[in-house]
């Protein structure tokens, strides 16, 4: 009796929703760039630049939409069906995860130059003006009474870079002893009062809510904070060793083939490697792959740091992910023991 009464209602609701969902195929297709947290300002500007170039070359008006969040979370959304034409994520493993779900060809990393990472970054420390806790290098982060702010390595790409940078430093200092490195990183995470899900959340925690003595941050995020809040509030400290962060970009094959947007999506990513793209990346404090293209005004912008790569130090992202960040991995052991 009841079910008969409700059935027409449900059908009507279903039809209405389906009609809303279906897209008219005739309109020119905008593309969507699903990215990680700190790239918002960069891609907002880059998208306009690319749209202008695309219009002069093809005559078509193009809208590039953007979505930002913790890198792992964003990858998850794409796997669940967020229709990204391109992904520009914080690290290769998150793109690998999408490739494993069958949405991107497994050889994606070789499709574009420089490991499909058109710009790089590294992990630095952001401290309050005058550096009241005298934080100079990684060793100072595990001292008692120092509060360290970093996002959660489970959801945030930046946080995984933070973690690996600390690990690489401690291992090198202890002559390659993995056990000592683990102890070091465990001590470091004991000093973390709050784990946000994304890099931007952590930056807001540190700069706005004024929690913590030091923020482990993307270099570009640290510079952005100086720019937003003034150099009289914060200082950047460059550690003696850090990690070469290679944020990866890729075209999402299954989406562009369905939407017919492969051409524009590929052009979009290639544009990142041109003079305009490299210059804009440098302007937003990403380290350009080709500093000679970015121009002389950015030549001395970035401090010289000794950088290790994930491939050298951890045998690649898949290996690092499996050992450190998978369920029951080293990070779980460490944070379980907090």
């Amino acid at each position: 009796m009841l079910s008969i009464r409700f059935r027409p209602l449900l059908v009507a609701a279903g039809v209405a929703l389906a009609a809303l969902g279906a897209r008219a195929a005739t309109t020119s297709e905008p593309i969507l760039n699903v990215s990680y947290d700190p790239t918002r300002e960069f891609y907002t500007e880059f998208n306009q630049l690319f749209a202008k170039k695309w219009q002069t070359e093809t005559g078509e008006k193009l809208t590039v939409k953007q979505s930002h969040g913790g890198s792992g979370k964003q990858a998850r959304s794409v796997i669940d069906g967020l229709a990204a034409d391109v992904v520009t994520l914080a690290l290769a493993y998150d793109v690998d995860a999408i490739a494993d779900a069958g949405l991107i060809g497994k050889d994606w990393i070789k499709r574009l130059p420089e490991n499909s990472a058109p710009y790089t970054s590294t992990i630095v420390f952001l401290v309050r003006k005058g550096n009241p806790k005298q934080i100079k290098d990684w060793d100072d982060l595990i001292k008692p009474g120092v509060q360290v702010i970093t996002p959660n390595p489970k959801t945030s790409g930046g946080a995984r870079w933070n973690y690996l940078a600390a690990w690489a430093y401690a291992r090198e200092k202890n002559g390659g002893d993995e056990g000592k490195a683990k102890e070091f990183v465990q001590k470091l995470f004991k000093n973390v009062p709050v784990l946000d899900s994304g890099a931007r959340g952590s930056t807001v925690t540190f700069t706005q809510r004024e929690l913590g003595d030091v923020l482990l941050a993307w270099e570009n995020e640290a510079y952005l904070s100086l720019q937003e809040f003034g150099a009289d509030k914060f200082e950047i400290v460059t550690p003696s060793l850090s990690v070469l962060a290679e944020p990866s970009v890729a075209v999402v094959d299954s989406v562009v083939d369905r939407k017919g947007t492969r051409k524009v999506a590929e052009a979009y990513l290639q544009f990142l490697y041109t003079r305009e793209g490299q210059e804009l990346a440098a302007k937003h404090y990403y380290r350009p792959r080709h500093p000679e293209l970015a121009g002389a005004q950015y030549a001395n912008r970035f401090a010289n740091v000794r950088l290790v790569t994930v491939d050298q130090a951890f045998g690649g992202w898949r290996e690092a992910q499996k050992q450190h960040f998978s369920d029951g991995g080293v990070f779980d052991q460490i944070s379980g023991a907090r």
Binding site: L20, G21, D80, G81
Partner: peptide
């Protein structure tokens, strides 16, 4: 038909 990540 796009349901999640869209208006529906």
């Amino acid at each position: 038909v796009q349901i999640i990540f869209a208006l529906p």
